[in-house]
Write a protein that binds this DNA or RNA. Structure first.
Lengths: 248, 248
DNA sequence: GCCCGCCGTTGATCCACGTCAAACACAATT
DNA sequence: AATTGTGTTTGACGTGGATCAACGGCGGGC
């Protein structure tokens, strides 16, 4: 299900590259000099538009490029033979996708657009080449990879030693913080994923996620209406995570 | 608890570097030309011996180097303010420690030796520098980081969508496979970590881990005696993971 | 060789979350 | 406006693994 959607854009549309991109501080170029960033422009060969529910790549696809999200958002997931799915992450604007593919020269997870999205295609070979010349790029790329490792450790903490409501609170706070970093409201946002996908990410069933949302609403911590979330009490959510010194 | 144990070795002991190291194929140099590997020797400045139960580094320590395990084994863990611990990984000979520190220029987890161990200290600045010159090194380093991301996704799968016995089976198979890669028996080995540490890693309580071990023994899949494990039926363990299409 | 502390095992009970089921909200389609 | 489908909420009930508790085994220090 879901056809592959590769929509290379015309040369005319390609005029704004990294050097003019307003996502600069969230993406690879962060921390590089102007001169260095100008040299980055050659790196981003293409853009690609991906429609909602379509795959940017699938597990097993040969690895050729990594992707920076220009607009939209994605989930990444891993499938077990028996059909079980584990969502390994949700990515939004400015974040990098595809790093898992370097190790085996093939992607090891699926990346699916949660809404109509656009990514910058960064040919991996070129990236390695350029990062041998541009010192700041090499270091920034290492930081991006390292950040992904740190983030994954956070998720392991969440899955391994938090209870359902703590997991959801941590998830909401994480989203809030990422929206803030992008200049959006910390308190009010639209979820792009379903309860089922949140549940898969958090190691919970969709009903448990739904109940936790309702509980938070009853407790005056948030206001939920379907996918629309308003956080009313950020400190309250934070407290939820820290106490509960019990738990598995 | 646990004092810092930094034991720099003498120049005389330092004679065998990467170019003569028999762990070569498991460590960074893998896939590099002989000439390239010779240049690696300058990279490994020091070795460090770490006694059982002592920290190689702690969360918050400034990041300066990554470490390749020469002998012994480690666990890495993250602590929550309320005292909860999550073991994020067990590392053995030839594996690289400390990659999480690059992103924030400080370590984000604790690395503790599970037995008396020795690591090669790889100054990170030098590594970046050298990997700008030695193409194979850069690529190999990226692969190592990427492999860590992939491994973490595997753990997320385990924590998020497998039941207790499946998790333990996956853990044992993973150990078995890593021992095999190091030329040890696939079927018989000694656990270096406690039930509690296994439990923390797998998101289970130590009693549950213990019961699962006993169950496997009753079912003729393994023979356990405390930390000594003998795997009797590898396909049986594999089957355990794949079926059970139910689960959370 | 004995004591002590840590680690592991096993049993009995409890509870957080999964499962099953029904109803509902909203969007797209006609 | 009715229709259909997909996602969400809520309730009733079941269960896997946590919790609590007691005991057993091994290794290290004296």
């Amino acid at each position: 299900m879901g056809m592959k959607a590769t929509v290379p854009i015309t040369v005319a549309e390609l005029k704004t590259a990294c050097s003019q991109c307003n996502l600069l501080e969230l993406c690879l170029p962060f921390g590089m000099s102007e001169d260095e960033i100008n040299r980055l422009d050659e790196l981003v060969g293409t853009r690609r538009k991906i429609k909602r529910q379509q795959n940017l790549y699938r597990a097993g696809d040969p690895f050729e490029a990594i992707y920076a999200i220009r607009t939209g958002s994605f989930k990444t997931d891993v499938l077990l033979e028996d059909g079980r799915e584990q969502v390994t992450g949700f990515q939004m604007t400015g974040e990098i996708l595809g790093l898992d593919g370097i190790s085996a020269e093939a992607h090891t997870c699926n990346a699916v657009a949660l809404e109509d999205s656009e990514v910058c295609v960064i040919a991996y070979g070129k990236l390695e080449e350029l990062s041998r010349v541009v010192e700041g790029l090499q270091h920034q790329f290492h930081k991006v990879m390292s950040r992904e490792i740190v983030r994954d450790h956070g998720v392991m903490m969440l899955l391994g030693s938090m209870r359902a409501e703590e997991r959801l609170a941590a998830f909401l706070l994480n989203l809030s913080q990422r929206f803030t970093a992008r200049g959006f409201s910390a308190a009010e946002f639209h979820l792009r994923m379903t309860r089922d996908e949140i549940g898969s990410y958090l190691g919970l069933k969709l009903e448990t996620v739904s109940r936790a949302f309702s509980k938070f609403q009853d407790d005056g911590l948030i206001a939920v209406q379907q996918k629309h979330i308003r956080i009313l009490d950020i400190p309250g959510l934070k407290k939820l995570i820290q106490r509960n010194a019990s738990a598995r």
